[in-house]
Every structure is written in structure tokens, then in C-alpha cells.
Design a binder for these strands. Structure first.
Lengths: 151, 151
DNA sequence: ATTATATAGTTCGATATCGTACTTAATTGA
DNA sequence: TCAATTAAGTACGATATCGAACTATATAAT
């Protein structure tokens, strides 16, 4: 493979990683003590794609080991932000439901970022973030669909 | 602030986060056992921007606590991938130098991703990754420069 | 039907990450 | 000059993340 392709993709993923880290830091600094991105992300996911999913569904969506998700969900459940119920279709499995408190928490966290988004949208006025975002969504969908292919 | 701006930025950072996680998983699966993204990233950083930096410089670059960097550097040093020397300009500080073995490790890790980049560059042919990357670099630079402003 | 295999989730031990408190050295300011 | 403050790195304890092994249930094979 040619050097240019390698360097293009490597640079791309590097930029993605830096922006991801910067945005994580911003969001995390707005979350209450003890709450991490992992917790927020699961709640946000459940509201975006709908709740009642299994832990496996969620761990696959985030591309993290199921054992990590067990732990994250246990924390959320302890804080009454989600409820775990038996999966009526599969005795081994569970269904995860977000609680009213969980919805509030997520909405409040998003609202808490308003000053940051205000500031950033001013600073980034010269960029077409919406269009870049659409491109990224396309790239993400393809990467997501091919995630298990290897070699 | 209007809902559209909020949702644009929120979607943008969400896409960034997903792609970041997908690319991290790909890279990490190519690293030898026990080596994580954090280790690779530091070596890569030292080669990109030059070594001899202080631990603080590096922790600030990655926007992680200095105590996390202490640990990461200790692991790298134990594996002889970096060397820590006293900072001649500041008795409290250190300088971090990448070793020949560290350079090899980083180059080898990058080469190990070739099959993935090959595959992705085929799948993503319809996207102008280089141009998106340039946009991201611009966004990243501004975010990076304004990272400590708040409220 | 019964056994073999695969799957969902948990437990457990190891390492990573992080916040707080501490040590040591540099800098500031009276 | 020297006390007060700031800054770099580390030690330590708490939680997060992860891989391997395990339990319980579902599915497949005969």
C-alpha cells in the first residue's frame, strides 16, 4: 500500500482521537462527581436508540467487552438510573430500561454543556461542522458495518 | 442557544466518539499482549513532535492527569521503550526519550495496521478522507487552543 | 429425548485511570 | 535573604476496564 494512503488514514484517526479526548474532557468536567463518560454514554444511547436492549446489545454498540458493560450497568442501577429486568425471550439475558431519573440525568448533562457549545460554536464559525458531521456519519456507518472483518 | 446548534455539535461529537472507539479497537487488536493505546500513543507522540519532553508536556498534550502519565511512562520504561533522564533545566522535572526499541515498536505497530487501512480505504473510497481530515485538523487546533476556557 | 455446543451474563484477578495528598525544587515578593 | 507560593513528579487508595474462567440457559445434532 502506498505511503500517502497510510498517512492520510493515520492522520485522520489521530485527529479523531484528539478531538474525542478534548470533547470527553469537556463533557466529563460537567458531570457530577463519580459520573463518567461511560455512564452518560449508556444513558444517551438508550434514549437515542430506545431502551429495553440487552447488555450484549449495548456492549456491542460501544465495542467494549461485555464484562465492562456489566460493571457500568451495575453502577447505573445502583444510582437508579437504569432498571434491569429479566428478558422474557431468553432466560440467560436481561433487558435494560432507563428510569425517569436516568432521563433527567442525561438531559441535565446535555444542558450542562450549553456554555461549552456556545463558546465552541463561536470559535468554530468558519467551519461547516454539520457537513463534516454528515461525512463522519457516512464513514462511521461503513466502519461499523465492517467492524468484524479482519485480515 | 438554539436547538439546532446544540444538536449539530452533539451529533458531531457523538460521531467523533464512535469512530474513535472503532479505530482504537482496531489498533489495539494489532498491538502485542499487554500493550494498550495509551502506550502506543505516547511513543507515537514522541516521534511526531520530538522527544526530550517532560512528563507534564505529554500529559497536557493528551489532556490526561499527570498521575496517569506517570504510570504510563513507568510501563514504557520497564519495557525499555523510553528512557527517563533528569531535566537539566529543572531539578523537579524529567525528560522523556524514546529508545531505539521504542521506535521499532511504534513503526511495527503502524505497519501492523496496513491490512486494516487497506480494507478501509477500499470501503471508504467514496469519501474524501483527506479533506475531512483537514477540516478536523482546523477544528482540533481551535479546540486545543481554547481548552482551558470555561463558563 | 439426550447429549454436545454455543451464548448471556457474572465472578475474579490484573492492570489502567484518576483524584487527593505529599515531597521536592523553583519562583515570587516582601 | 528568606518566607510564601507555585509547580513537577510520585505515592496511595478508589474505581474502571479488561481477559479468562465459570454458571445457567438456549440451540443444534443425533
Amino acid at each position: 500500500m502506498d505511503d500517502k494512503t497510510r498517512s492520510t488514514y493515520f492522520t485522520f484517526f489521530n485527529e479523531i482521537g484528539i478531538i474525542s479526548q478534548l470533547s470527553r474532557t469537556i463533557l466529563e468536567s460537567r458531570l457530577p462527581d463519580g459520573m463518567l463518560i461511560s455512564h452518560f454514554s449508556v444513558l444517551n444511547h438508550l434514549m437515542r436508540v430506545g431502551d429495553g436492549r440487552t447488555p450484549q446489545d449495548i456492549s456491542r454498540a460501544f465495542q467494549v467487552p461485555k464484562t465492562s458493560m456489566t460493571h457500568t450497568l451495575a453502577v447505573l442501577e445502583k444510582h437508579n438510573l437504569v432498571e434491569m429486568k429479566p428478558n422474557p425471550k431468553d432466560g440467560r439475558s436481561k433487558n435494560v430500561w432507563i428510569t425517569a431519573k436516568g432521563r433527567e440525568f442525561r438531559d441535565h448533562a446535555i444542558a450542562g454543556m450549553d456554555p461549552d457549545i456556545e463558546r465552541l460554536s463561536g470559535l468554530l464559525a468558519e467551519f461547516d461542522v454539520a457537513t463534516v458531521s454528515e461525512q463522519l456519519a457516512g464513514i462511521r456507518k461503513i466502519m461499523d458495518a465492517s467492524r468484524d472483518e479482519k485480515d
